[in-house]
Amino acid sequence: MNQPPIIEINNVSYRYDRDNVLENIQLSVPKGAFLGLVGPNGSGKSTLLKLILGLLKVKEGEIFLFDTPQKSFKSWDRIGFVSQKANSFNTGFPATVYEVVASGLTKKVGLFRLPGSKEKQEIKAAVEAVGMEQFLTRNIGELSGGQQQRVFIARAIVSKPDILILDEPTVGVDSKNVQSFYEMLSYLNKKMDITLLLVTHDIGIISDKVTHVACLNKYLHFHGSMKQFETLDETDLSDLYGHGIHLLEHHHDHQGADV
């Protein structure tokens, strides 16, 4: 438990021109957590992600990644990222699932080198972890939105990152497949020991999978474990969150699920 958090955000504020998008954010992602970062559209979630990933410059406050100040952080291969845009790629591209996942190793293998048998094993393992092994030789464009998203997750985890950051990964996933999609994420978290930071606008559906929750709407309104989150009642939530949030319909009993 004494391990430093994977991501530590200290008093970070951010503004575009005059508008404050983020105000005094204090957030940490402990190792092994499955943290759901929830907030309505325009709440600054994407901005916070961009700050973490270094796509935007931190001007106020500081961010630590693996206990290193983000400015001097170099081991970006320890952080996997699956963007929302992953499912707006050119679906006509003639690439098999295997080829797409293999492309996740490009940087790791390095210039002028070809992937060897060790890499082939890693690719197969990543594809199995997301449950897509029977589609290895299929063209990516022939798959459903949810399957494609799984392939992109495999591409992100094939280089064995410690943490996987997912930005609204279920956009474009069939509603009937969303549940199994989150079960797969849970599997990555518990069995493969990958810390997850999941950004979504819908806490309801993930409430029985995540271990920690952070509610963001310009300010960080709540940050704690799922257990603490569940002790809040709905009026607290509405106050915290700004407006109504659907939690109750997915409220499952968590006895024994101490994670």
């Binding site: 970006w76 492309s103 190793l105 490009t106 940087k107 293998v109 210039l111 070809l114």
Partner: peptide, 22 residues
């Protein structure tokens, strides 16, 4: 032959290619 995997990644997903630091 030497740049095959980089060219593939660049063709398939330019943004990811840039983000991954190639």
């Amino acid at each position: 032959f030497l740049l095959y995997k980089e060219l593939f990644l660049l063709s398939f997903d330019e943004e990811h290619a840039k983000a991954s630091g190639i």
